[in-house]
Design a protein around this nucleic acid. Structure first.
Lengths: 154, 154
DNA sequence: TTAATAATGATAATCATTATCAATAAGAAA
DNA sequence: TTTCTTATTGATAATGATTATCATTATTAA
């Protein structure tokens, strides 16, 4: 669904317009919110932040837009086990902001880490190559999480 | 919540009784179901399978038991993006059954792979060690998923 | 066996996410 | 620009997975 006409290489992150979608005020506003935080916003979190600036934008639109952003590869969607999805602007696996997560199963705290990312990404690259070939699977994204207990919860 | 009295090293996978929980018929039945499949069962899937043998066991108990199994580390809980949680018996990172997942974002198909697992796990071990130290985080589990399009969906 | 407590199951409640649909906004064509 | 066509939006209702409640039953300890 990333490209409306069904053509083009899907799952590449790219500009809205390049994908045939309109870059409307609500969509821009939602992107702005995502772009100005390092938090792991839920749909409602996002809605509340958007709402402060654009009270007319509804929750439904936020859900819809986030989903669209996920589909076009501009946003990553995570499940940290607290019953609601979390969204983060993706900056590409080699992007500055790329990181992985530590998830505390005690209190739900999320720690972003970038340590070892290079090694991890390098291994993942190799793994991806092998898996793509073996399973004829077009890999567009990866996800690594460590689960455990944070300092406080131990 | 793994140990009822709050003591003992949490998150270690272990026997029910060792954790102070009763190994009842429903719990045994649920474990049996999980142990006799390679599918990624949802709570309801599990309920239906359990129900065939033990019609008296309710859905609530299945949910409760699965959660308990997750908490004690005997079962892994996954979110593959289809709106319901999936459960798999964990056999430990070095266990025979340990694998990672390819998730097709087109049709939702899940492919288990064990290729490259050794390399991956070895790197994860090292990473874990570093992260544990730096963030004082007690890591008990990891999760790797690759997202993309399967053969059919490309 | 009995007492104390944990576990169960039917039911209702919760709550994140989706579907619906009329109203509006954006881009294309004239 | 003005009109036309279609995409987008937002309020509302609906869905559906998961949880909370609570009386009943099963399990262990005494």
């Amino acid at each position: 669904m990333p490209w409306k006409d069904g053509t083009g290489p899907p799952w590449l992150q790219g500009k809205f317009k390049g994908c045939g979608y309109r870059l409307t005020v609500p969509r821009q506003a939602i992107l702005d919110v995502l772009n100005s935080t390092t938090e792991h916003l839920s749909a409602e979190d996002t809605y509340l932040k958007v709402h402060k600036v654009h009270p007319a934008i509804g929750l439904t639109t936020v859900y819809r837009t986030l989903e669209l952003l996920v589909q076009t590869g501009m946003v990553f969607k995570f499940d940290f086990g607290d019953g609601r999805a979390r969204y983060e602007l993706s900056e590409g696996p080699k992007g500055i902001g790329h990181h992985h997560h530590l998830v505390c199963t005690g209190c739900g705290r999320i720690i972003d880490y970038t340590d070892f990312i290079d090694e991890e990404v390098e291994l993942l690259k190799r793994t991806e190559k092998g898996l793509s070939k073996k399973y004829n699977f077009k890999i567009t994204n990866h996800m690594i999480q460590f689960h455990g207990l944070c300092e406080k919860c131990q």
